[in-house]
Amino acid sequence: MKDIQLENRAVTDEKTKIAANNVNVYYGDTRAIKDVNIDIKSRTVTAFIGPSGCGKSTFLRCLNRMNDTIDSCRVEGRILLDNEDIYDTKVDPVQLRAKVGMVFQKPNPFPKSIYDNVAYGPRIHGLASKKADLDGIVEDSLRKAALWDEVKDRLQAPGTGLSGGQQQRLCIARAIATSPEVLLMDEPCSALDPIATAQVEELIDGLRTNFSVVIVTHSMQQAARVSQQTAFFHLGNLVELGDTDHVFTNPTDPRTESYITGRIG
């Protein structure tokens, strides 16, 4: 792993944002996630890595209850967001998802204007009462997503007309417009070219100041570049969790070592 360049970065000492205890996820009878325990810290980028099919997306989707939309999916165990069980019956998944935003693998802007895409969440949640406030939120989100300069003159143009990388940044802007506390990203760069990927990675690093970010990636280089914490999943198990530098240079589990040296995957 010498070719992955690791910066020396401060190991975060933030407090825990999400805590998962003994989480099991089933699709029908098959167990996709097995007894996962993990702490996700605030103001930190946590990367989920692992071979495909190991359950990264499944686990990520538990964190904002997107798995509720899959009929066959069943989640056991406790997941606490700020010490509150998100699977408790009194928690409304709709409100939860406003707090825990999500960016998907494929850019999926609505077939609406750029402005309406970003304003979608704020409008739903009534975050802005005046047009000026909404304009402010839209501009702010687009700036945070490093897209403002490229689209400020054509906010009314359809979001689907942007390039792939721009679309993905638009989706990020749309997700952060609702000012979530946690941002979940499922392989956000897998459909992007290297330049767009670099832009999005830079953006993710910037997001850390405001949000707790969880990113699923199949690229170890990407995990090394953007994250402070790395979790390695294998066949539904959380094999290793630790500071990114540590996981990549000194993995404790042999499976992790095999994966990052390219022997499994």
Partner: peptide, 12 residues
């Protein structure tokens, strides 16, 4: 993916 995007933003 359209529905996912909207639900993921906290829409009912």
């Amino acid at each position: 993916t359209m529905r996912d995007a909207s639900l993921g933003l906290g829409a009912t």
